[in-house]
Design a protein around this nucleic acid. Sequence first.
RNA 1: GCGCCGGUAGCUCAGUGGAUAGAGCGUCGGCCUCCGGAGCCGAAGGUCGCAGGUUCGAAUCCUGUCCGGCGCGCCA
Length: 554
Amino acid sequence: MASLRDALIGAITSARDAAIAEGELRLPEGATLPPVGLERPARPEHGDYASNAAMRLAPVVRDAPMRIAETLQRHLGMPDGVAEVHLAPPGFLNLRLDPAWIAGRVADIRSQGDGFGRVRVNDPRRINVEFVSANPTGPLTVGNARGAFVGDLLCRVLESVGHEVTREYYFNDFNAQVRNLGLSVLARRTGQPIPEDGYHGEYVADLAAGVPDDLWAAATAPGAEADAILGRWASERVRAGIEESLAGLGVRFDVWTTEGSLYEESWVERGVQQLRDRGHVYEEDGATWFRSSSFGDDKDRVVFRSDGRPTYFASDIGYLGQKFSRGFSELIYLWGEDHHGTVARNRAAAVALGFDPSSVHWVLMAWVRFVRDGREIGMSKRAGEFISLDELLAEIGPDAARWFFGSRAHTTGIDFDIELAKRQSSENPVYYVQYAHARCSSILRNATAAGVEADATAGLELLHHPAEQAMIKHLLLLPDVVADAAERRETHELTRYTLEIAQLFSQFYRDCRVLSDDPAEADLSRARLALTDATRQVIANALGLLGISAPASM
RNA sequence: GCGCCGGUAGCUCAGUGGAUAGAGCGUCGGCCUCCGGAGCCGAAGGUCGCAGGUUCGAAUCCUGUCCGGCGCGCCA
């Protein structure tokens, strides 16, 4: 079902096309039509929806915006649900909705239930979303929180509009970091000092204590590579712990891909060979280079070092081919913005490999600085100085954390004051929203106890109070909010919208008594009960999308 | 020096070329006979960093500039 907004845009577009077909709007040869814009005006006297179609059309058809608006209005007639179309200078087309029609939508929302807000895009795609991807050399820190929550939310939103999403975690399993972890475990176990570039956190001691006897024997056997053996074991154990932490937050991954597998399965070799075949690879100073500067990068990049070892970028090249071979029509990389310098070479590689660059997106999240008393605190797994994600969640809870990270644009840098967050978590707007949901639930419970049932359709036209009308009109926006979030790959508008719903419900609750003992108000009471139920449904759906619980009481 | 991202209320942040720029928190002042006070109402608080430009219309687009963060390796 098309959203109200889509239906109105469609009606105006049809009116425009009809006017063109009948020669009332004269389009110069080869002119391109501007899209029809539709917004919700801030001021009520401008109607419920306003279109700038006439103003946008004016320079194209070379006529006065007001005259164009009149023409559009004539062809538009009165679309379904609209009670009035009026013009405002310099050429706005303002639409006022029919209150009775609005009231009737409550039944639609309730009948769609959990499905309300889920819109299907025209081109459902298979999308691979790679996020978090922290190397398993230690537990996830609060520094990984943003990626985990934002990535999970993005996946939920993409899924809700009909895309098929694979959540992917990519990690390193064989390089120096892993060996260092192995050496650190070895040192801890044998009581030796931990190497300079080893890992000093307490979790290393736990790992050392947990090494199985047979593995320890194998690692310490003469000639054995203790660092590699212990490192592989320890990193897998850490990885399992990461998976557990994420699962505890409701963040689950479909695929865990190791960097090593890209070599074992020859993806890197084949990718680089493909680039070589296309003439984009050359040798210089003993190293193998990719000519990424031909594709917009600042400079060319080394793929194989002069000692023959591959760079991290070589793995990226192989990974691109590996991902596309799995049938994805789109790849999304959710990276911290400190990696933005590597986007250009990856995009260059995608183009050079013959992939459509518009099918690969990098979403770069701005940096999160963790501060305490106004001073930044570092997050170093190596130094063992960090606050783990589990610790943070134990303090402020997953709902508050999800709301916090979910309510900011990914381009916004965050100064996260842990102590402040703890103190203020109880004032997090998320509780206000949950409270509204609990209140709705409470009213519905009281109604059931009193033997009152919400009527599915009859009496809804009684919902003409301003608070009721404002409430319903806002409920109807959920599909648009979700669709926009999915299209923009920017999800923070959802929290704002949900908060607005809760605020409007407070006003409705204040102004419109739902339950009544007065028989004369029985119909109105049932209609308001239906609206309360629809509101509860929308809050539950929105919170569900955000991965936040919607309690019936709190 | 070059590149990317920011600069909007006291603080944290929304704002997709539209009409008189918003929210949360904080501050100040009100509101509990009634469906849940984790609430409601009101007030104060803004030259949207600065200067030009494009446009019927700019916080939004373009140019310049200042400030902040990040990046600029045969590290990951």
